[in-house]
Amino acid sequence: MGIPGTDPLTVEVVELIGAVVARYHDEYEQAAAEHSLTGAQARVLGLLSLEPLPMRRIAQRMKCEPSNITGIVDRLEARGLVERRPDPADRRVKVAAATDEGRATARLLRTSLDFAQEPLAELSTQERTALRDLLQRMLGAPAGS
Rank of each mutant, 00 (worst) to 15 (best):
T10W: 05
D74A: 06
V73Q: 03
L16M: 12
D133Y: 02
P54T: 07
R43P: 03
Q117K: 11
L37T: 08
M55P: 02
L123T: 09
Q60C: 10
L53W: 00
T70R: 12
A33M: 09
E122Q: 14
R85Y: 06
G5Q: 08
V13N: 05
A89K: 07
A59V: 04
R132L: 08
T99W: 06
R23S: 00
R56V: 09
L81Q: 02
L45W: 00
S112P: 04
P86V: 15
E15I: 02
E127I: 03
V21D: 12
D74P: 02
P86A: 15
E65K: 13
N68L: 15
V13E: 11
G39Q: 13
R43A: 15
A116F: 00
M138R: 08
P54L: 09
A32M: 07
Q41N: 08
T99K: 03
D100R: 12
Q117Y: 10
Q60D: 15
I3W: 13
E29F: 13
K63M: 14
H35S: 08
G71F: 10
G71K: 11
A33K: 09
V13D: 06
L131W: 01
V21Q: 04
H25E: 14
S49R: 04
G46D: 04
E118G: 06
R128L: 06
R85K: 15
A32C: 11
